[in-house]
Design a protein around this nucleic acid. Structure first.
Length: 183
DNA sequence: CAAGAGATCATCT
DNA sequence: GATGATCTCTTGA
């Protein structure tokens, strides 16, 4: 079933971990792309210097201040999009970046699946662009998340986030999550 | 195989 | 006018 808003209103770190193994559904016209989330990164609140919104509310980051469950999509390095899901309460800037997915080509989840690692590649594969910025994943017919089998919490590996060296001590936080067997 | 540079533009100063 | 939550290709050992 589709994940309810209450799921995304939990603590960002918890959402990031629980999203692993959930299904990400992208509906384009009559085509449906079903994928499973296999890597996430947490961006928690205004104090997190790696978070765009740590410098305050601007036009770009205003999406992150929305209610939990909205999509935050932005363009990076002029050519790649990154897809985040807003978490926690309204007016609190926090989000989970979707870094990696696995396309499920058949209903059996074992083989024949294509792994997409890297936020830029995820968006290219799912045709996510800034038109989807601000979309409500609770209501959207184009993009939403379903609960999945999930991975055991004990198999989740955490590591430092990527590309955020400028964030000082926040850069060392192990807020990047992936199931253990993908490392 | 590792390392480095280029592509390319919305957003903020 | 500078820069970035990236990716890919090219270079060179």
């Amino acid at each position: 079933m589709r994940l309810p808003r209450t799921f995304f209103e939990q603590k960002t770190l918890k959402v990031a971990k629980q999203l692993l193994g959930c299904f990400l559904i992208r509906q384009i016209g009559k085509k449906k792309i079903i994928s499973r989330i296999i890597e996430t990164e947490a961006y928690c609140g205004p104090k997190d210097l790696a978070n765009h919104a740590s410098k305050g509310r601007t036009q770009r980051t205003s999406t992150m201040f929305k209610k939990a469950g909205h999509a935050y999509v932005y363009l990076i390095y002029g050519m790649y999009h990154c897809f985040n899901i807003v978490t926690e309460k309204e007016d609190y800037p926090a989000a989970v970046l979707i870094r990696g997915i696995e396309i499920t080509k058949n209903l059996k989840l074992k083989t024949n699946n294509l792994k997409i690692l890297g936020p830029g590649k995820v968006c290219r594969e799912l045709k996510i662009d800034k038109n989807l910025n601000g979309v409500d994943l609770i209501k959207s017919k184009e993009l939403w998340v379903k609960s999945g089998v999930g991975f055991s919490p004990f198999k989740i590996k955490s590591m430092p986030r990527v590309g955020v060296d400028y964030a000082g001590k926040w850069a060392k936080k192990k807020w990047r999550f992936t199931p253990h067997h993908f490392c």
